[in-house]
Amino acid sequence: MENVAASGVGIVGVGRCLPGKKLSNAQIEAQCNLPPGTIEEKTGVRERYILSDEESSSTLAAAAAKQALEHAGVTPDQIGLIVCCAFTGDYVYPALACKVQEMLGAWNAGAFDLMANCTGFQVGLTVASDRMYVDRNISHVLVIGVTAQSRFINWFDGDSAMYFGDGAGAAVLGRVPEGYGILANDIMSNGRVYEAVRLRGGGSSHPMRQENVDLGLQYFEVNGMEVWKQVIQNQPKVMRRVLEKIGKGIEDVDFYIFHQANLKLIEFLMAKMKQPMAKTFTNVATIGNTSDASMAIALCDAVMAGAIKRDQLLMISGVGAGFTFGATAVRWY
């Protein structure tokens, strides 16, 4: 085991990968019969990237993971666990994480997938850091958020097509000195709005049979109004809950990484909390809502831009279908 004196668990490397095809608002607006400018006005998104025919969740996930390993200076054989946060694996089963293990040659790692939709990466950080705090034999964990949701979007339905893009982000967790790293996590859920954002086709209630395809159940269904209500009602709550665990308040947070659902929502959250936009990082304008990958890619981009500095208190928070709300407080090392 490395660095046995270190009792904290922190993020020691980050990486990301975007697929090869760029898709502009103009293309979507044309095929969805939306007036020009509608998508940017409603979401702040200008463009997004989607999979080419040769790409899949595993190719994106492995590429992001390799970049994170290199950034951390960690080799695949040092990884004790791989957690893939995804609902668009290469197959319905087995777990995407096992495929990624094979692609990386991370033969000392256990591997499993985790589904919390757009909150996935934060929930993945929670589970992974909990495992490391419990099992001191695990020196490093790879947490990957990945989405290939373009395969499940009806690109002629503006209500779902305007938001999303594909991508992957990854973080390597490792041992850091006490007082640094992941300080606390919190997860809340609200199953009363289970039906608000969903992909029914392929599930056990609606197997992938012709009659369900004829009903269009292979595509996302998004109730945008309900998403908005859930975010503004519950995301501040879950952030306050995690901060209470460490005796801190919103005013003590130095930097925020949010799920990149919609630029307007992020601007609202920061304004409501009376926090300046300079204390957060956004990339939703250029890559869209990348679901499970969103917070991981934003974190990677913010780190690479030098926006997050040692000793800062970082908040990582997201909201996903279900609905599930998550927040993680990190003292950056």
Binding site: E41, K42, G224, M225, W228, I232, K264, L265, F268, A271, K272
Partner: peptide, 10 residues
């Protein structure tokens, strides 16, 4: 709409 409602709150 949702966007203007957020502005209304503020």
């Amino acid at each position: 709409d949702s966007l203007r409602h957020m502005n209304l709150v503020l």
